[in-house]
Design a protein around this nucleic acid. Structure first.
Lengths: 225, 225
DNA sequence: GTAACATAAATTGTTAACAATTTTAAGAAC
DNA sequence: GTTCTTAAAATTGTTAACAATTTATGTTAC
């Protein structure tokens, strides 16, 4: 159970970014992380290098590591990449999903429905994880890994630029996609997913970027389910 | 001109892998790399971490870093990902290529023709770089980065499993793709590219994996153009 | 000759101290 | 009060020494 400490740091930061607790531009100081996770500086450094490779952290020489601030161009490119990759993932899912996969997807939809309105951070997290679950059903780890990174960057973009409301994926979209997959209707599933992604992208409004404030420790603390 | 030494190491290794001088399974010892590049061990370590993130190096705890050995499953997944990503790249290229881009592509074709038969390592390198050039024309750095990684892994797969002949992309394929792009014939360009990639994949024959031998220094030495 | 075991060498992993750079703060000049 | 200069503090970057693990070597028993 005790996985490498540097992976714990990476996961915590990614989780915090995905949940929009860590905002773009936040400084990730080595000492601060070192204290928070009880790891020595070399491990923190390794974790930050991995996050930099994922493109969710910018590393400025002699200045330190900061949560990346995606540009509008980045946003367009990230969403185009998601459409390309998730289309193939979706096609795989339609062709390969077995009963167990469909049960998993439906269970996830139920969890989303339960969290909707009830618990906002949890709802956002589930909404995001739906796409990763779909990737798992697609059974191509190469594409899954890319999608993980893209979902992360999407969260960062949405956190930076999204109009206050309408951030959530309509859960209805997700359930209709699952229905199409269960019906083995490839064309429909692909169309619904593409529309869904375009709708999310349409929700971002570039402009004012509010400044960063607050303590790192609070941001990395995961709120209760 | 003097870029960070760890990037030099990463690029050298990637180049050697792509050119099939570094074979799968080769051990990349820290001391050996340290001596070869005149860098201290910390920098070598950082370079190896980046290569691990690119999935072209496997890191075994307390054992060291080895050039990855892709499985047949990996191969299938990598090539499917390539088809998905390069299709979108190609569509972008058809829509956005300007005269300068087309000139670049044609110049590259000429270089490929010149190296064909003449100089084998150079021909392989150019053949591989064609796909990266296409990605640049597509103007989506996110997709370009993924393709870079996939091309690398493809080279590794081809180096491991390819039937001795037929490794090279038919240069004819490349030139017909450029023609289709110049003619703004999206459907044709997509079909040609997809066929091209499937043909490359069809050239790999899983089976005997010859053992690794030889000195690291020789493998990292780049043969003359 | 082979197998098992013990020892030595080599390699990776970790830690801490030191150097270089940047950021912050304080003080003087205007 | 603002701005420039200077010093202090904090942070990042680098290096080297030490610890732990694995690999190689050599010896002994059978």
């Amino acid at each position: 159970m005790d996985k490498p400490i540097d992976l714990v740091i990476v996961d915590s930061v990614l989780d915090a970014i995905a949940d929009q607790r860590l905002r773009a531009g936040t400084k990730l100081g080595e000492q601060a992380l070192s204290d928070l996770f009880g790891a020595n500086r070399a491990l923190v450094r390794r974790a930050l290098a991995q996050l930099t490779a994922y493109q969710v952290v910018d590393h400025l020489p002699n200045r330190g590591a900061f949560v990346a601030t995606p540009t509008p161009d980045d946003a367009r490119n990230v969403f185009q990449a998601r459409r390309a990759i998730e289309a193939t993932i979706c096609r795989n899912a339609v062709r390969q999903a077995d009963e167990a996969d469909l049960a998993d997807l439906r269970a996830h939809l139920a969890a989303e429905a339960a969290a909707h309105g009830d618990n906002r951070p949890s709802a956002v997290r589930l909404s995001r994880q739906f796409h990763l679950l779909l990737a798992r059903v697609g059974r191509n780890p190469v594409l899954s890994r890319y999608l993980e990174e893209l979902v992360m960057r999407s969260s960062l973009i949405i956190g930076l630029y999204a109009a206050r409301q309408g951030v959530l994926c309509a859960e209805d979209d997700h359930s209709r996609i699952v229905d199409a997959i269960a019906a083995r209707d490839e064309a429909l599933a692909l169309r619904l997913l593409d529309q869904h992604l375009r709708q999310i992208e349409a929700g971002v409004r570039f402009g004012d970027v509010p400044p960063v404030t607050g303590a790192l420790s609070a941001m990395l603390q995961r709120p209760g389910e």
